[in-house]
């Protein structure tokens, strides 16, 4: 695989995150390579979102180092990281509720690295593509606050796509979507992954999505690494089954459907 030889775009080096007496992250080490699709799984409360918050600068790690694109970014603020090409979605969706769907995505297209050169009209035209990709083109004029949860998740994705990130961190972007929609969004992510322009890190509970999209999976349990490796190995790992999956999974979609 060529991927093995490619450069790391993100390195999390021995990161601890302590809140009061609670050790939310404990010596987390991981490396994401350019062009990878990197999955993070773990039970609720395992520290997945905390890890994403540490990577994107919303939290400053108690110990350890974050390296993005070859530069140490520990202690950088979220907007500095966004400017250097990081993008993320939020598990609890954070749309700008008083803006329309289109305006939300335009905000992404106006303030990113490339976006600063765009006029408003150019940004509007640019947003057609992300909106169409996630399937929100029909609802461009709807007020974001009035979307259903699933549509808000899609909006999060469209907005981060509009920033054209080098590294995109997705926090449960499929939550609240139906199977058909999960299918559509998976295809979109597959295309993005295959285009090689954007590296994806995704937190997801849908195991079949992880096995389909990811090259590498990291399992977090009580803030610590439980296992990491290829998706097939992860879902067969007895400790992962015990702590997270609850029962053995098959690689292809859902057992009951076929």
């Amino acid at each position: 695989m060529t991927k093995e030889s490619s450069q790391p775009i993100l390195e999390v080096d021995n990161v601890d995150m302590v809140f009061g007496g609670l050790r939310a992250l404990d010596a987390v080490n991981l490396q994401v390579r350019v062009g990878d699709c990197f999955g993070i799984i773990g039970a609720n409360g395992a520290g997945k979102t905390t890890l994403l918050n540490v990577i994107t600068g919303y939290l400053r790690p108690t110990k350890g180092k974050i390296v993005f694109d070859g530069v140490s970014v520990t202690g950088k603020t979220p907007f500095q990281l966004a400017k250097s090409g990081m993008g993320r979605t939020f598990q609890i969706t954070q749309p700008f509720v008083e803006m329309s769907v289109l305006e939300n995505v335009m905000t992404g297209a106006l303030f990113s690295i490339n976006g600063r050169k765009r006029s408003i009209a150019e940004a509007r035209a640019f947003c057609d593509e992300p909106l169409r990709l996630v399937g929100l083109a029909d609802q461009a004029e709807t007020l974001a606050g009035s979307l259903t949860l699933g549509a808000k998740k899609k909006l999060e994705l469209a907005r981060v796509l509009a920033t054209e990130p080098k590294l995109m961190l997705l926090d449960e972007v499929m939550g609240g979507l139906t199977r058909a929609e999960v299918e559509e969004i998976s295809e979109v992510l597959e295309k993005i992954r295959d285009s090689g322009k954007t590296t994806i890190v995704m937190i997801e509970h849908l195991v079949h999505v992880i096995t389909r999209l990811c090259d590498h999976v990291y399992v977090l349990n009580f803030g610590r690494e439980l296992f990491q490796g290829r998706p097939d190995d992860v879902i067969e790992h007895p400790e992962v089954i015990q702590a997270y999956l609850g029962k053995p999974q098959t690689t292809n979609a859902q057992p009951s459907g076929t």
Partner: peptide, 10 residues
């Protein structure tokens, strides 16, 4: 609307 989320857009 959301100062925290706006940061992630740069």
């Amino acid at each position: 609307d959301n100062e925290s989320a706006s940061q992630m857009l740069g």
